[in-house]
Simulated scan of single mutants.
Amino acid sequence: MDLNLNGKVALVVASSQGLGRAIAEELVKEGANVMITSRDREKLQIVKQEIEQLGSGKVTYIKTDITNPEEIEQLIKATNEQFGKLDILINNAGGPPAGSFDSFADSDWQQAFELNLLSYIRMIKHALPLLRKQGGKIVNIASSSIKEPIPGLILSNTFRTAIVGLSKSLAQELAADHILVNTVAPGRIATDRITYLDEVNAKKQGITRVELEQKVKTTIPLGRYGTPEEFAKVVAFLASDGNTYMTGSTFLVDGGMVKAI
């Protein structure tokens, strides 16, 4: 299938590693021009050099703290100045710390809110004037906790779920502007974030991370962790012209792990 991404312009947030990087790579392979961003300038320089070799799409970057509203505004402005338009916004952010309700202070909740929900809202707000010019796609990355809360991740469970409500509401409000909005939720995808969570849970259970990973795999019908590339292909499809009639939906990429209907 030709996704018709050649020449499209995409902004992929939190894209110097993990799922964000994998999505940027997939879009570049399909011919899209991609703005990558994170708080680590050195990583961005390396990622740009590596992924621009993968396809015909152009890659540029700007260092951005997505909890800073002024830097978000500058990011959108820089994307437009570099490429002259914006067709695709991929909202993404690193997960908040693991822990129980009693372990977090108000400041922890505020930080998680600003990183994992308010950054998405601000990014969309500033991107909309560009997206409205020709229509486009917004894909919000969440977590499998939107369907089945994950023990020990109350911050993520709270704010990732809110992303679904945001996406569903925006899908209705922006349909007239030909902007499609969807949510994609990863399960156990092999990234540094999952390694961190496995280490936390393994320590709690008094076992090694490898032993914990083997236990988790028994709960996944496909019997393995997913790869970032597998996740990225789903996002690329939703962001492409291959998707013309799906909006307001939530998609799990989890190997069948989540049991909720």
Rank of each mutant, 00 (worst) to 15 (best):
T60W: 00
L54S: 04
A142Q: 03
K217C: 07
Q214F: 09
K8Y: 12
N116I: 03
L54W: 10
L153Q: 09
V235D: 08
F104P: 07
N140H: 08
E114C: 00
Q111A: 05
T247E: 04
M246Q: 14
Q17V: 01
E26H: 11
V200F: 13
Y120M: 02
A142N: 02
A98E: 14
N201V: 07
F231I: 04
V234Y: 00
S167W: 05
K77S: 13
M35V: 09
V200G: 04
A260V: 15
G248M: 01
S167Q: 12
H178W: 08
Q110F: 10
L252D: 12
E70M: 03
V258C: 09
E213C: 03
K43Y: 11
P69W: 00
A236Q: 13
A32P: 00
V216H: 13
A93W: 06
L130W: 10
L27E: 07
V234E: 01
I72R: 08
G31K: 02
D87H: 12
D198W: 06
A78L: 06
H126W: 07
T244W: 13
D192W: 03
G18F: 00
G226L: 15
V12Q: 11
A175Y: 11
E26D: 11
T250S: 13
N157D: 11
A142F: 10
K48R: 14
P151M: 10
V200R: 00
I62Y: 04
K63C: 14
I76S: 01
F251G: 13
V235H: 14
E148P: 08
A239C: 15
T227R: 15
I46M: 14
K8M: 12
L131P: 09
L115C: 02
Q53T: 06
A202R: 11
M246N: 02
L19S: 05
S145A: 12
D177C: 03
S119Y: 07
S107Q: 15
K8Q: 07
T218S: 12
Q49L: 06
A162R: 14
R160G: 09
L128Q: 02
K125I: 01
R160Y: 01
S156P: 00
K215T: 15
T227F: 15
T219M: 10
T218H: 11
Q53R: 07
E25Q: 15
A260L: 08
N68W: 02
A24W: 01
